[in-house]
Design a binder for these strands. Structure first.
Lengths: 209, 209
DNA sequence: CTCTTACCTGTCCAAAAGTACAATGTACGT
DNA sequence: ACGTACATTGTACTTTTGGACAGGTAAGAG
């Protein structure tokens, strides 16, 4: 697994090198493709000295490269972490994280996990809990859905069309419609838009109005 | 690292055994302490056939044991995942996850990471974004909308139909459509469902894939 | 062996949504 | 006065949705 550090001055910090003796450093995200030929690896993004806007752009580019991206912040904070993860990063830590921790993080993200400071994780959950009060009004009725209906509903909740759902579940578009009709009735929504919103615990026009 | 599965019938699924030949199974969380003497390990909680209430209690007990806890759900869903992680679980996956994936998950949580389905992670972030002071990814593009377009978009975000929007804004349905076409292009969404989701900072099918 | 439930499908139809091409009027800045 | 952006609407057409009506299969309960 390659460890590729993107850092403004093109210099690896000692601790990075200690964690990954074979780590590579590049100056910009655009240099990444030519800096490595490895099929898999981890991209580490040093956001010190970077304006938030630039950091966001870099992160976007980095994520599109396909490797898991870990953002290393000079001063980790909630908002920043939040944006980083939303943008597709799967790790968020301190630039001066200890070598052992860097290795842990690498291990985690290389295997599809997400790594962030424990406090941050709890903070995230706390935040979410405020908008997602456990058993939402939709929840109880969600149990009324059959397993197949639930699958369809979840697809709609992601914005999929009937055709896409049909392909995903390997059934006919007609069947998707059948499930949908049933779902609409059970959840008391009138169309897919309201369903999509309801599935995401967002009040809809008729509900509110 | 010990892999301890808590499952109602006390039987290890084949795939679990395949992933961890030395895995242990117990029937209840209360049996965990006497089932192992290992200093560290991972607790896997099978929540099939468990009432939500019982699952919650079990999870709490499991977490208090001190080992990282991974919840395995029969039908993974946002709310359930949310509750599990809030309660202290650091992993959330499908009961029938493939052996390779189970090993990945174990690796992740053993090293302080959090593991959940990628879609779920995005959902979480979307949820938090509604209360977090963070400028959401959609925001900047929202500025591209004209005042009238914004009004239409907001209505769609609440689940309104074209007719309703037309009445509310006192314009023709045709005009609503005109605004919508423009909105779709500016925000790079393909239909009202994706628009409604985007307006609520929820990643959509094509975005997440 | 029935009855029920979930799941799947078909045809037909009507409403809703979305697009293409075109046009009018208004407001604002140069 | 001229250009540009915005808002508005019209006609016409295609696609998507959703519902009505009518089935067929498979699994499980009684």
């Amino acid at each position: 697994m390659e460890q590729l550090f993107v850092t403004a001055n093109g210099q690896l910090l000692e601790r990075w090198n200690k964690a990954f003796p074979k780590a590579i450093a590049v100056v910009a995200v655009s240099d990444v493709p030519e800096a490595t030929a490895a099929p898999r690896g981890v991209l580490w993004l040093d956001t010190r000295n970077l304006e938030p806007v630039d950091a966001a752009r870099d992160l976007q580019d980095a994520v599109s490269f396909g490797w898991p991206v870990v953002v290393m912040a000079a001063v980790p904070n909630e908002t920043d972490a939040f944006q980083a993860l939303t943008a597709g990063a799967v790790g968020y830590c301190h630039v001066k994280a200890a070598p052992e921790q860097l290795r842990e993080i690498a291990l985690v993200v290389e295997h599809g996990g997400v790594w962030m400071l424990p406090e941050l994780l709890q903070r995230f959950l706390a935040l979410s809990s405020r908008v997602a009060p456990a058993p939402a009004p939709v929840e109880p009725e969600l149990n009324a859905l059959t397993s197949r209906e639930l699958m369809v509903a979840e697809q709609v909740a992601k914005g999929a069309t009937n055709r896409e759902i049909a392909e995903t579940l390997d059934i006919t578009e007609r069947t998707v419609k059948a499930h949908l009709s049933s779902i609409f009735e059970k959840l008391a929504v009138r169309d897919r838009v309201q369903l999509a919103l309801a599935m995401n615990n967002i009040p809809t026009y008729t509900t509110v109005n």
